[in-house]
Design a protein around this nucleic acid. Sequence first.
DNA 1: TTATATTACGTACATTTTACGGAATGTTTT
DNA 2: AAAACATTCCGTAAAATGTACGTAATATAA
Lengths: 258, 258
Amino acid sequence: MNSEEDVADFVKNGHQQYLPHISIDPVIFGYHDQQLKILLLKWVGLNGWGLPGGFIRRREPLSRAVHRVLQERTGLDDVFLQQFHIFGDSPYRVQGQRASEFAEKYGLTVDDDSWLFERTLSVSYFALVDYVKVSVRTDFFTNEYQWCDVSAIPPLLFDQNEVVEKALTTLRLQLYHQPIGYNLLPEKFTLPEIHRLYETILGKELDQRNFSKKLVGLGLIRKLDERRAIGPHRSPFLYQFEKEAYENALKQGIVHTY
Amino acid sequence: MNSEEDVADFVKNGHQQYLPHISIDPVIFGYHDQQLKILLLKWVGLNGWGLPGGFIRRREPLSRAVHRVLQERTGLDDVFLQQFHIFGDSPYRVQGQRASEFAEKYGLTVDDDSWLFERTLSVSYFALVDYVKVSVRTDFFTNEYQWCDVSAIPPLLFDQNEVVEKALTTLRLQLYHQPIGYNLLPEKFTLPEIHRLYETILGKELDQRNFSKKLVGLGLIRKLDERRAIGPHRSPFLYQFEKEAYENALKQGIVHTY
DNA sequence: TTATATTACGTACATTTTACGGAATGTTTT
DNA sequence: AAAACATTCCGTAAAATGTACGTAATATAA
């Protein structure tokens, strides 16, 4: 959607195609090289940084909608997405926005009761991807993007700082229970690789020896009989995710503590 | 809402007052006397048992909406409610309902595009209450109710069996992390009381000695210097919830495992 | 051959969870 | 008053889990 015509139509008639009052705003964590970032977009009409977002098509299952939104933004398919909350309490989510400001900015005529500016609840998911493999697409509403380190998130639109915080908390809590890194690491990876990933996500050091014991003990990964050549050092063994365990995890979580 | 006039207006114009496409369907667990039940309503228009439900007012924060819905159904205030999922994948949630059947049943004229019969996502919460203290209110749409044992849930409307299952799983998972029994037990309660509560919810025996150690150890409850007379037996000591710990739990969960 | 950076692995200690038996107590019955 | 009964109360040992930590192996480059 990039022509002004399309946009005007979207603003005016989008509610015929999409459900009003509900947006999907995935927190897309990007990991690479011991850095954990999130994808932020500069929303022109709202004049600030915020999460990528999208709407649900009238006849589209919710989970398919999230995958589509992620796909549209990042080009990625088959990413593990985890729903973690629906936000509907913040004043911003109760009052809706003023259409007029937005209209001015774009030089569009926008009715004050346009569906786009009505109150919107936000269904929140998070995903974890490799940000160097992603080519982000911006559009008419978003003219800029950044991968922003999680330790330096600027003030975001609406209540989205809270959303990001909760996403991060949930990501960390579920790290040993959900197949979070599944689509991030290569099919065969080394212990140091997954070790660095976990350390980065949790923001703290994990004892390397205990870490491998734990992951193997939980049945999450399995050691292979191959190594990878990594230049001037000892070749590390390769590991694989235990597919069955992970598929179980997808449904019910790996660790059951009741 | 019980007069036919009100109902006709609700069906026709409810979307002026409520957000369409989103319902709130709390799973209300009722505990009493070592029985764990859930509140089910017989939905006349849909001809089946289902969860109590309600809609969000246009300018009403989400969490206030749930509390209101619960209040309207049960008369209870200040109940701990925990959001656990939003459902939007089931075919029933993607296609919407047929208005005509409903109209027939009630002898109302209902437009096929009435907001009420459009696709609806369900924001799900659970609560835990004492079901003998609740007087359930039915209304025009629901002419019957039952407190149904969790071990014998009948086929429910839409995807609500899945909803209930997930509610139960979440309830059990969070039992040691959220102030779930807070509004259920009296302010001062005995160890056997809370012990039986936990056993019933988890559906298994918990060693009585380890149980008290655990709860006190977690800082959830504190032993008082009083006892309660319970007839022909040794008088048990009374305990209280640790208010601060519980208020913390409300925000972030008590046990932090990352 | 040596230096260097990295991976690999095992063992002792602390903490948490689990298992389990026996003494104390408030009434009712004899 | 004593005995019987149903219940509450407590502590300790064993097992499992989590934490801390040092040293040997290895792949290249110098």
